[in-house]
Design a protein around this nucleic acid. Structure first.
Length: 483
RNA sequence: GCCCCCUUAGCUCAGUCGGCAGAGCAACGGAUUCUUAAUCCGUGGGUCCAGGGUUCGAGUCCCUGAGGGGGUACCA
């Protein structure tokens, strides 16, 4: 038994092609024009010869003639195959074509009697015989699970899916362009790290045989990018994957892409300006009015984004101050948070999430977080309990975070050690002290602003897809035997 | 992790009160030289997710499990 069972009726056609002396898996087919361009260049009064290649998406056979719809990445065109025009031998080969096959065609571009722009084919090449049928033409491939598992089919069948990933590519291009113009250079730092740092999340663990050491897939690139600041790379960014061994839902995939950047001699207010400008410019590229739908919501990307002071917002939403530990815990219990085994600062964060963050729809910077939640962040000069940090929320999602980066090596060490002391509700969440990073800091890191933005979520907003799996080409799925 | 829903032909789906397993598309045979989801005539196609139970009889009711979807929880 082959691993993938071809459909019998397609094997028959495959054999017939070979019997006719045709290689069903063609070869180079040069000098084609994108179908979209062919259609744009059409002039009714002066028919031209054209050459196109693509997938047969539909086929209407009528005895001695048939119409095939041929689709490439740029568009779709009708091709007319006629016995009279092709001759007995070629028409016989044409009879073996089916929806899903890839063909190259040569012919004259004119209109049919009904006015459809059509390639009147006088020669063609079989480029690939499909041994599995494409999805049914009315409803197509709709089941989300099947769409993710067979993303190839999803992409060539569902126009809007292909479009979404085209947009994603353009968004990433846009981010790179934006940052280059501001003097940032792109770098790549380790995805496999001896110590997972930069965020508190459960890491994936792997093993390197030659060195016989465990390595962690990174949960964040932060500590490496900061080493580059020490090294004198004053404006750096990295667009790459992070890996977190956590749950999967509409906003979370175990591997996800972020852009993380550092700007020497700046701080979190520079990052705020940068983030606002970047996100706004991406939105404006899609809608000149800067208003985009997201599910039931309409998001207005007009500047300036709203600013919300963490402690003021907390007081306003809850009617008591964030440092009233007793009332914070009481509120947490009422919200159904199991607060007993959590530290004060984590309980506060839960209550803040439930009462403030979850209700944010329009682009909003939540500014000045409790320092206890932000160990890599420079505290405010006038109040060490407050960190120079903001989180950006849009459409109910956390889009990113930024700090004035902590560059005091001794304070950093102290904060690392405090993290170790805090009772750890997640046994698997590693909290370690990265001595090598501390050593780098000790050589002197310039004060800097740093920021991370979730690119998948950004794409969700820009393409109006409320599920992260719609914007990741191959989201993680449970493997399935029968396929 | 917990709650709710879904799983029937290659695909998209219907299936009433527990009583012979259904449609469209796709496939196969035929007709058709300007069609547009082509049309017309004909044919074949099922481990009803898996296992167990109730019943004279289960796609349908009950239990267990698997996979998926949605929600919720977790994710400095």
């Amino acid at each position: 038994m082959p691993r993938v069972q071809p459909e019998d009726f397609r094997l028959v056609k495959l054999q017939e092609l070979r019997r006719l002396g045709v290689d069903p898996y063609g070869g180079r087919f040069p000098n084609t024009q994108p179908i979209g361009e062919i259609l744009l260049a059409f002039e009714p009064e002066s028919p031209k010869r054209v050459r196109a290649a693509g997938r047969i998406t539909n086929l209407r056979a009528m005895g001695k003639a048939s119409f095939l719809d041929i689709k490439d990445r740029s568009g779709s065109v009708q091709a007319f195959f006629q016995h009279k025009r092709l001759g007995q031998e070629k028409f016989r080969i044409h009879d073996q074509l089916e929806p899903g096959d890839l063909v190259g065609v040569d012919g004259e571009l004119t209109k049919t009697r009904t006015g459809e722009i059509t390639i009147f084919v006088d020669d063609f090449t079989v480029l690939a015989k499909a041994l599995l049928s494409p999805p049914e033409k009315w409803h197509g491939l709709r089941d989300p699970d099947m769409r993710y598992r067979r993303r190839s089919v999803d992409l060539f069948t569902n126009e809007e899916v292909a479009e979404c990933f085209l947009k994603r590519s353009r968004i990433v291009d846009g981010i790179r362009e934006f940052l280059r113009q501001r003097g940032f250079i792109e770098v790549e730092t380790p995805m496999m790290q001896p110590l997972p740092g930069g965020a508190a999340a459960r890491p994936f663990i792997t093993h390197h045989n030659a060195l016989d050491i465990d390595l962690y897939l990174r949960v964040a690139p932060e500590l490496y990018l900061k080493r580059l600041l020490v090294g004198g790379m004053e404006r750096v960014f990295e667009i790459n994957r992070n890996f977190r061994n956590e749950g999967i839902d509409r906003q979370h995939n175990p591997e996800f892409t972020t852009v993380e950047l550092y700007q020497a001699y700046g701080d979190y207010s520079d990052m705020m300006e940068l983030a606002e400008c970047l996100v706004r410019s991406l939105a404006l590229q899609i809608d000149p009015g800067g208003k985009l739908p997201f599910g039931e919501m309409e998001i207005n990307y007009a500047a300036p984004f709203k600013r919300l002071d963490y402690f003021n917002a907390f007081q306003e939403a809850n009617g008591f101050p964030a440092d009233d530990v007793g009332r914070v815990r009481e509120k947490a219990r009422r919200l159904g948070v199991e607060e007993a085994r959590l530290g004060d600062e984590l309980v506060l964060d839960r209550v803040f999430e439930a009462t403030v963050e979850d209700h944010i729809v329009q682009p909003t910077f939540v500014v000045d977080y409790p320092a206890a939640l932000s160990p890599l962040t420079k505290p405010k000069p006038d109040d060490p309990r407050v960190a120079q940090r903001w989180d950006l929320f849009i459409g109910g999602m956390e889009m990113g975070t930024a700090y004035s980066e902590l560059n005091d090596p001794q304070l950093q060490e102290k904060k690392f050690l405090q993290q170790l002391e805090g009772e750890d509700e997640e046994q698997e969440t590693l909290r370690t002290v990265d001595d090598d990073f501390l050593r780098a800091l000790a050589y002197g890191m310039p004060p800097a602003g740093g920021m991370g933005l979730g690119i998948d979520r950004l794409v969700m907003l820009m393409t109006n897809n409320p599920a992260i799996r719609e914007v990741i080409l191959f989201p993680l799925l449970r493997p399935r035997k029968e396929g």
